[in-house]
Amino acid sequence: QTTIQVRVPYRVVGLVVGPKGATIKRIQQRTHTYIVTPGRDKEPVFAVTGMPENVDRAREEIEAHITL
């Protein structure tokens, strides 16, 4: 297991999390990772935990939302 920090712009935190957390839950299920969402007043950084290859996939999925 490994944990990485995925930093995103403030404006996309809501996009990545999705309505009621649906998007981030879907990313967690698809990539078999555990993702901690940043709090409102915190740095916009997601903490992604899982097997290294799964963590990389989750990071790619999160980063895909940044380019939307």
Rank of each mutant, 00 (worst) to 15 (best):
Q1I: 15
Q1H: 13
Q1C: 15
Q1L: 13
Q1V: 14
T2P: 04
T2M: 12
T2V: 15
T2W: 10
T3Q: 05
T3V: 04
T3L: 07
T3N: 13
T3E: 01
T3S: 07
I4R: 01
I4S: 06
I4W: 03
I4T: 04
I4V: 11
I4P: 03
I4M: 06
Q5H: 15
Q5D: 07
Q5W: 13
Q5R: 12
Q5C: 11
Q5E: 13
Q5A: 10
Q5I: 07
V6R: 06
V6F: 02
V6L: 05
V6M: 10
R7L: 01
R7G: 00
R7T: 05
R7Q: 07
R7D: 08
V8H: 04
V8P: 00
V8W: 04
P9C: 00
P9S: 06
P9V: 06
P9Y: 01
P9A: 06
P9L: 00
P9Q: 10
Y10V: 07
Y10K: 15
Y10H: 15
Y10W: 15
Y10Q: 15
R11K: 15
R11H: 14
R11T: 13
R11M: 09
R11G: 15
R11S: 15
R11L: 07
R11W: 12
R11E: 15
V12S: 14
V12Q: 13
V12R: 06
V12C: 14
V12M: 14
V12W: 13
V13L: 07
V13W: 05
V13D: 04
V13T: 08
V13Y: 02
G14R: 09
G14C: 02
G14Q: 10
G14W: 03
G14V: 02
G14L: 05
G14E: 12
L15M: 13
L15K: 13
L15N: 10
L15G: 07
L15F: 12
L15S: 14
L15H: 12
L15A: 13
V16I: 13
V16L: 10
V16N: 00
V16W: 01
V16H: 02
V16S: 04
V17S: 03
V17F: 00
V17N: 08
V17P: 07
V17A: 07
G18F: 02
G18N: 08
G18I: 03
G18E: 08
G18S: 06
G18C: 05
G18Y: 10
G18L: 06
G18H: 00
G18Q: 11
P19C: 09
P19H: 15
P19G: 02
P19D: 10
P19I: 05
P19E: 10
P19K: 14
P19Q: 11
P19Y: 13
K20F: 10
K20W: 11
K20G: 14
K20D: 10
K20T: 03
K20S: 09
G21H: 06
G21T: 07
G21C: 07
G21R: 08
G21K: 02
G21S: 08
G21P: 07
G21M: 09
G21V: 01
G21E: 06
G21N: 00
A22S: 12
A22M: 06
A22F: 08
A22T: 10
A22D: 11
A22N: 14
A22V: 05
A22R: 14
A22I: 07
T23Q: 03
T23K: 06
T23G: 10
T23V: 10
I24N: 01
I24M: 03
I24R: 04
I24E: 03
I24L: 08
I24W: 00
I24C: 01
I24A: 05
I24Y: 03
K25D: 08
K25E: 04
K25F: 03
K25C: 06
K25T: 08
K25A: 08
K25W: 07
K25G: 08
R26D: 13
R26H: 07
I27P: 05
I27T: 04
I27A: 06
I27W: 02
I27G: 02
Q28K: 03
Q28R: 00
Q28A: 14
Q28G: 08
Q28P: 06
Q28W: 01
Q28M: 15
Q28D: 07
Q29E: 15
Q29F: 01
Q29W: 00
Q29T: 09
Q29I: 03
Q29A: 10
Q29N: 01
R30G: 06
R30C: 05
R30L: 11
R30M: 14
R30H: 11
R30V: 10
R30F: 05
R30A: 11
R30Q: 14
R30D: 13
R30Y: 06
R30W: 00
T31V: 06
T31F: 03
T31A: 04
T31R: 05
T31I: 06
T31M: 10
T31Q: 01
T31G: 02
H32G: 13
H32P: 02
H32N: 15
H32K: 14
H32T: 10
H32E: 10
H32I: 04
T33H: 02
T33W: 02
T33P: 03
T33C: 03
T33D: 00
T33I: 07
T33E: 05
Y34K: 15
Y34V: 15
Y34G: 03
Y34S: 14
Y34N: 15
Y34F: 10
Y34P: 04
Y34D: 11
I35R: 08
I35Q: 04
I35Y: 03
I35L: 05
I35K: 04
I35V: 03
I35N: 06
V36I: 10
V36K: 14
V36G: 03
V36D: 11
V36C: 08
V36Y: 01
V36T: 13
T37W: 13
T37A: 13
T37E: 09
T37M: 10
T37L: 04
T37P: 14
T37K: 04
P38W: 01
P38E: 01
P38F: 02
P38A: 02
P38M: 10
P38Y: 01
P38G: 05
G39E: 13
G39F: 06
G39K: 13
G39Y: 01
G39R: 13
G39V: 06
R40D: 09
R40W: 06
R40L: 12
R40F: 11
D41T: 10
D41V: 03
D41W: 08
D41A: 07
D41K: 03
D41C: 08
D41M: 10
K42N: 13
K42A: 15
K42Y: 01
K42S: 14
E43N: 09
E43D: 11
E43R: 04
E43P: 12
E43L: 02
P44D: 01
P44K: 07
P44G: 00
P44L: 05
P44S: 09
P44A: 11
V45K: 02
V45P: 03
V45Y: 10
V45Q: 02
V45G: 05
V45R: 05
V45M: 06
F46L: 08
F46P: 04
A47L: 12
V48W: 00
V48E: 06
V48F: 00
V48K: 03
T49F: 05
T49E: 06
T49R: 08
T49Y: 09
T49K: 09
T49M: 05
T49H: 09
T49I: 13
G50A: 01
G50S: 12
G50Q: 01
G50K: 12
G50C: 01
G50T: 03
M51W: 03
M51Q: 12
M51Y: 09
M51L: 14
M51F: 11
M51K: 13
P52I: 03
P52W: 05
P52D: 01
P52Y: 06
P52M: 00
E53H: 08
E53T: 08
E53A: 11
E53S: 08
E53F: 05
E53Q: 11
E53R: 10
N54C: 14
N54Q: 10
N54S: 10
N54A: 11
N54R: 02
N54H: 04
V55M: 00
V55N: 00
V55I: 02
V55A: 05
V55T: 09
D56V: 14
D56H: 08
D56I: 14
D56Q: 15
D56N: 15
D56F: 09
R57F: 03
R57N: 09
R57E: 02
R57S: 08
R57H: 12
R57W: 06
R57K: 13
R57D: 07
A58H: 00
A58I: 00
A58T: 09
A58V: 06
A58E: 03
A58G: 04
A58D: 09
R59I: 09
R59D: 00
R59L: 06
R59P: 06
R59G: 02
R59S: 06
R59A: 04
E60K: 14
E60C: 07
E60P: 04
E60V: 11
E61L: 14
E61S: 04
E61M: 15
E61C: 12
E61G: 03
E61I: 07
E61Y: 09
I62K: 07
I62F: 06
I62C: 03
I62P: 02
E63H: 12
E63L: 14
E63M: 15
A64Q: 14
A64S: 12
A64L: 03
H65C: 14
H65R: 09
H65I: 14
H65P: 02
H65Y: 12
H65T: 14
I66E: 08
I66K: 08
I66F: 11
I66P: 01
I66N: 07
I66Y: 10
T67E: 15
T67G: 15
T67N: 15
T67W: 11
L68P: 15
L68S: 15
L68T: 15
L68E: 15
L68V: 12
L68K: 14
L68G: 15
L68F: 13
